[in-house]
Amino acid sequence: MTEKDFLPGVYQKLLDNGKVTWKAPSNIALVKYWGKKPVQIPANPSISFTLDACATTTSVLFEKKDNNKALSFDLLFEGQPKDDFKPKIHTFLERVEKYVPFLKEYHFIIETSNSFPHSSGIASSASGMAALSMCLMDIERQLNPAMDDALFHAKASFLARLGSGSACRSIKSSLVQWGAHQNIPNSSDLYGVEYPFEVDSVFKSYCDTILLVHKGQKQISSTVGHQLMHGHPYAKNRFQQAFDNLDKLKSILASGNLKEFITVVESEALTLHAMMMTSMPYFMLMKPDTLEIINKIWQYREATKTPVCFTLDAGANVHLLYPEADKEKVLDFIKDELIEHCENGQYIHDRVGSGAIKINA
Rank of each mutant, 00 (worst) to 15 (best):
S173C: 15
S173N: 10
L175W: 04
L175V: 06
V176L: 08
V176F: 00
Q177C: 14
W178M: 08
W178E: 10
G179Q: 09
H181M: 05
Q182H: 15
N183C: 08
N183K: 09
N183I: 01
P185I: 14
P185S: 11
S188L: 01
S188W: 01
S188H: 07
D189R: 02
D189E: 12
D189L: 00
L190Y: 11
L190E: 11
L190C: 06
Y191L: 04
G192V: 05
G192K: 00
G192M: 05
E194G: 14
E194A: 15
E194F: 05
E194C: 15
Y195W: 14
F197W: 06
F197E: 03
F197T: 09
E198N: 10
E198T: 13
S201E: 15
F203N: 02
C207K: 13
C207S: 10
D208F: 03
D208A: 04
T209I: 11
T209L: 06
I210N: 10
I210D: 05
L211N: 02
L211R: 04
V213I: 09
V213A: 04
H214Y: 14
K215Q: 07
K215S: 08
G216V: 01
G216Y: 10
Q217L: 09
Q217V: 10
K218S: 00
K218T: 02
K218H: 02
K218R: 04
Q219F: 03
Q219H: 08
S221P: 04
T223G: 12
T223M: 06
V224R: 08
V224M: 08
V224S: 08
H226W: 02
Q227T: 08
Q227P: 00
Q227H: 11
L228R: 11
L228W: 03
M229R: 02
M229V: 05
M229Q: 06
G231F: 09
G231H: 04
P233D: 06
N237D: 15
R238E: 09
R238I: 08
F239C: 03
Q240V: 07
A242H: 12
A242L: 03
A242R: 09
F243R: 14
D244W: 05
N245W: 08
N245V: 03
D247Y: 13
K248C: 06
L249T: 05
L249P: 03
K250C: 08
S251V: 05
S251E: 15
I252M: 06
I252W: 10
A254V: 07
N257H: 12
K259F: 11
E260P: 00
F261M: 12
T263V: 12
T263K: 14
T263D: 09
T263S: 14
V265R: 08
S267P: 03
S267N: 15
A269V: 03
L270G: 06
L270D: 09
T271H: 13
L272M: 15
H273A: 01
M276W: 07
M276G: 14
M277P: 01
M277R: 15
M277V: 07
S279C: 10
M280V: 12
Y282W: 10
